[in-house]
């Protein structure tokens, strides 16, 4: 009786210990909290780069995608002929210098989507503060390029309330009522084609009015999941941002809806 009890006990404890040991013997990765930065007004480039590197490898969570090289462009290694990220950043978008491009990549990631990748890069302003974003830019610049981020960029974004923590998801405080301008401002053309503009990720706008009525389009823009995805795009349901409802004014929304309904 005692022997049996002891045997059972050792099987139970042995099993538990085995799992505890197993879990302790694999690589230990902790998910850190992105460190809030306390950068003085005359912060040096080295300090920025160091802070950025730490964020990149730790609390920023970038490695989840960029560490693999298949899910997202590898930022630590040369990307084919275009070179390291610090070199290629200046050539990605016409008229955008490296610093602007990298900054935009982080807070408006769908503005320019690197060919061959899905638009899954999260808007970092949702989780990181503006100064944290700038340290990342500095770090990425340092990989093969020259660091141009300075304390002025940090100061400028601190002074500019729109550059705060919710910049990316908040409305571009625009009052335009011009349909094309609205489509562009709200990045619809990053995923939709109209005429020869835009990219073919979502269904084209060219004949959307023939397929969908006003109510449908309005629902789609306000809450994409509330209505059926177009035929052939079921797998992409959920890709379209859900933030337009808060981003557009009611009048702007109507302009877009009417405009699209007329595209037959």
């Amino acid at each position: 009786m005692l022997a049996t009890n002891l045997k059972i006990l050792s099987v139970v404890l042995g099993t538990i210990l085995f799992y505890t040991y197993l879990a302790g013997s694999i690589p230990q990765v902790e998910s850190e909290v992105p460190a809030e930065l306390d950068l003085s007004a005359n912060v040096t480039a080295e300090e920025l780069v160091a802070a950025g590197e730490e964020l990149y490898a730790g609390g920023g969570g970038c490695l989840a995608c960029h560490g693999t090289g298949t899910r997202a462009p590898n930022l630590l290694e040369p990307d084919g002929a275009t070179g390291l990220i610090g070199e290629r950043c200046g050539q990605r978008v016409e008229g955008m210098v490296c610093k602007e491009y990298l900054h935009a990549s982080l807070i408006r990631p769908t503005d320019f989507v690197v060919p061959g990748f899905d638009p899954i890069m999260p808007d970092m302003s949702r989780t990181l503060s503006e100064s944290q974003v700038w340290t990342l830019v500095a770090y990425l610049e340092s990989l093969g390029g020259e660091v141009t981020v300075s304390s002025e960029d940090l100061a400028a974004s601190a002074a500019d309330p729109a550059g705060g923590a919710t910049a990316g998801s908040a409305a571009p405080a625009s009052t335009t009522m011009e349909p094309m301008a609205l489509l562009e401002e709200n990045q619809c053309l990053v995923c939709h084609q109209l005429g020869d503009q835009g990219a073919p990720i979502g269904p084209p706008f060219t004949d959307v009015g023939a397929r969908r009525d006003v109510d449908f389009i309005r629902s789609k823009v306000l809450d994409p999941a509330s209505v059926q995805p177009a035929e052939g795009y079921e797998a992409l349901a959920g890709t379209m941002p859900t933030t337009f409802g808060t981003q557009l004014s009611a009048a702007q929304l109507e302009v877009i809806v009417q405009f699209l309904a007329e595209q037959r």
Partner: peptide
């Protein structure tokens, strides 16, 4: 911060 698996396993 979310702990790594080792410490988590001990809690489990």
């Amino acid at each position: 911060a979310t702990p790594a698996l080792g410490p988590a396993a001990q809690m489990i």
